[in-house]
């Protein structure tokens, strides 16, 4: 069941689109915001609410990089792996990150604190290498000081 808050948020967004099914991506994002990720159950709830086929919504949900179909940690790290960051030391940064966290890209720390994901260009190529933690952009990250960046996120 979608919560009243989720339903209300979806209905509010719906006013910006020409019809109900068009709101599918918005609904997925809203449910993800409330629950951290989109479970099979959450997906079925949205499909029912928008009156679209669950398989159709599933094909949308799995298409986009930032709809999570598996649980993620409390904080999501998006590390840019595109060309300018690669030139400016992405590999070293990734080494330090995986060592610090004890996980590989795509995984979540056992304590549920961080999920580490690669992401295409964050539009900070002139301040590379770049990464995001949740909504925060961190630019020109010194791989040796990546622990300090992570320390801000409990």
């Amino acid at each position: 069941m979608l919560s009243p808050a989720e339903k209300q948020a979806i209905e509010e967004e719906m006013r910006h689109y020409a019809n109900r099914p068009s709101c599918g991506l918005e609904a997925l994002k809203i449910v993800q915001k409330h629950r951290g990720w989109v479970s099979d159950e959450g997906l079925a709830d949205i499909a029912e609410f928008l009156r679209v086929a669950p398989a159709e919504l599933e094909s949308v949900a799995t298409f986009y990089n930032l709809i999570f179909r598996r649980p993620v940690g409390r904080h999501v790290i998006l590390a840019c792996d595109s060309v300018s960051c690669w030139i400016m030391g992405h590999d070293r940064l990734m080494q330090r990150l995986t060592a610090e966290l004890g996980i590989r890209p795509g995984e979540t720390t056992p304590d549920g604190r961080f999920t580490l994901l690669p992401i295409p260009c964050l539009g900070a190529c002139h301040r590379a290498p770049a990464l995001m933690v949740d909504d925060d952009l961190h630019e020109a990250v010194d791989p040796e000081k990546v622990g300090e960046v992570l320390g801000k996120y409990a």
Partner: peptide
């Protein structure tokens, strides 16, 4: 005027795929 926040995919920038994305479909 509405702000639509994408869910991430390079293809969304291609203008016809962008319209599919805005309609809640795959880009």
């Amino acid at each position: 005027l509405y702000l639509h926040i994408s869910a991430g995919r390079y293809m969304c920038g291609e203008s016809s795929a962008l319209m599919n994305a805005l309609e809640g479909r795959r880009a």
